[in-house]
């Protein structure tokens, strides 16, 4: 190597260092969003909620730009969730059942003008404030630490530890509106590989004897059976926290059910709330109140014999506000 080449190498190294140092939190979050679609890996992570820790295996495989992820319980062999852009599969070995949800026209959903999937790229700084925290080291990797803090109490905050080389989130925390950690995932080991076999994101146990519950989700607006001459009846939330907009409207058909379930998705670009509207629900299931599953809140109410539930990774006040504001509105034909 000549002196000239050495100097050039040194300059490039120095320049990269300066460029990395100059990167702000949004640059890192954009990199993380890209890594979700570019980087394959597998590893073990700890999920912590309410002081209880569970161990989970994750395989994240990219093939031709499509990401498939398999999350497997360490406690119950074979209990797993497998997601790809067209399908979600939950394998429940104790119940010998599989719940499959097929997303009809999944690949076209990206083209929909309504459809901006929530994510950390281009965070709206009027709603969330970003900050770089002290670098840290997770699972043997240097990380950049980013805080995402909401400006009001209608959404959660986040802290992310991003691998300095791959921009994959090696640690992630959900922060309540009171500033307390609600949930955390933490990789204890992670292995990056461009050659993860397809079998590693397939169900890990034989399912020949399992029953299969299959539902199909369509992005087309559902046709209401009580459509009137005055126009199409559509459900809509009439009160939303600042920054939330309707991003997706779709319906879900379940075998054996006459009435499709309607789903409205509201998002502020980072957080999201789905409103599910179901008709034909048994009377004893028509209830009002809160359901909570770790950081996920769901508020249920009823209107005109429909069960209305707002679900999201957001504070209680947000799902409650949205659920209680849902109304059937008629639109002109």
């Amino acid at each position: 190597m000549t002196d000239w080449q050495r100097w050039l190498g040194a300059i490039l190294v120095a320049w990269n260092g300066i460029a990395a140092a100059a990167d702000g939190p949004q640059d890192w979050l954009n990199r993380m969003a890209s890594a979700t679609q570019l980087v394959s890996y597998q590893g073990t992570l700890l999920h912590t909620c309410a002081g209880v820790v569970d161990v989970v295996q994750i395989v994240h495989r990219i093939e031709n730009g499509r990401a498939t992820a398999r999350v497997t319980s360490h406690a119950v062999a074979g209990r797993e969730i497998i997601r790809n852009p067209d399908e979600v599969m939950c394998v429940l070995p104790e119940q010998k059942s599989i719940v499959v949800e097929t997303l009809q026209g999944g690949s076209q959903r990206e083209d929909s003008p309504m459809n901006k999937m929530p994510g950390f790229s281009n965070v709206d700084t009027a709603i969330y404030k970003l900050a770089m925290l002290q670098p840290d080291r997770i699972a043997g990797h240097d990380t950049e630490v980013i805080a995402v803090r909401p400006v009001d109490e209608y959404r959660y905050g986040y802290r992310l530890w991003l691998d300095r080389n791959k921009a994959v989130a090696l640690k992630f925390e959900l922060i309540s509106e009171a500033g307390e950690m609600l949930e955390q995932i933490l990789f204890t080991d992670i292995e990056y590989s461009d050659h993860i076999p397809a079998a590693d994101v397939s169900p890990s146990i034989p399912m020949d004897t399992f029953t299969r519950q299959h539902s199909t989700v369509s992005v087309e607006p559902p046709v209401q059976r009580d459509q009137s001459p005055q126009g199409l009846m559509r459900w809509r939330a009439t009160e939303l926290p600042a920054g939330f907009n309707l991003t997706v409207r779709r319906s879900k058909t379940v075998p054996g059910s006459l009435d499709p379930m309607e789903q409205l998705v509201y998002s502020d670009g980072l957080g999201s709330v789905s409103v599910f509207i179901e008709a034909g629900v048994d009377e004893d299931e028509l209830a009002e109140g809160l359901s909570r599953f770790a950081g996920t809140n769901a508020f249920t109410t009823t209107m005109e014999d429909h069960l209305i539930t707002a679900v999201g990774y957001v504070p209680v006040r947000t799902v409650k506000m949205i659920a209680l504001s849902v109304r059937p509105l008629r639109e002109s034909p």
């Binding site: 999350v71 997601r83 949800e101 994510g119 986040y158 959900l174 949930e183 879900k252 769901a298």
Partner: peptide
């Protein structure tokens, strides 16, 4: 609730989705 979480899953941002899926397979 499981059905709702599965349907809403794709609308979580990516790290939140992994967190919720981790909790679902555990509990």
């Amino acid at each position: 609730l499981t059905s709702y979480l599965v349907s809403h899953g794709e609308f979580f941002n990516a790290p939140s989705r992994l967190t919720v899926d981790s909790h679902m397979v555990s509990k």
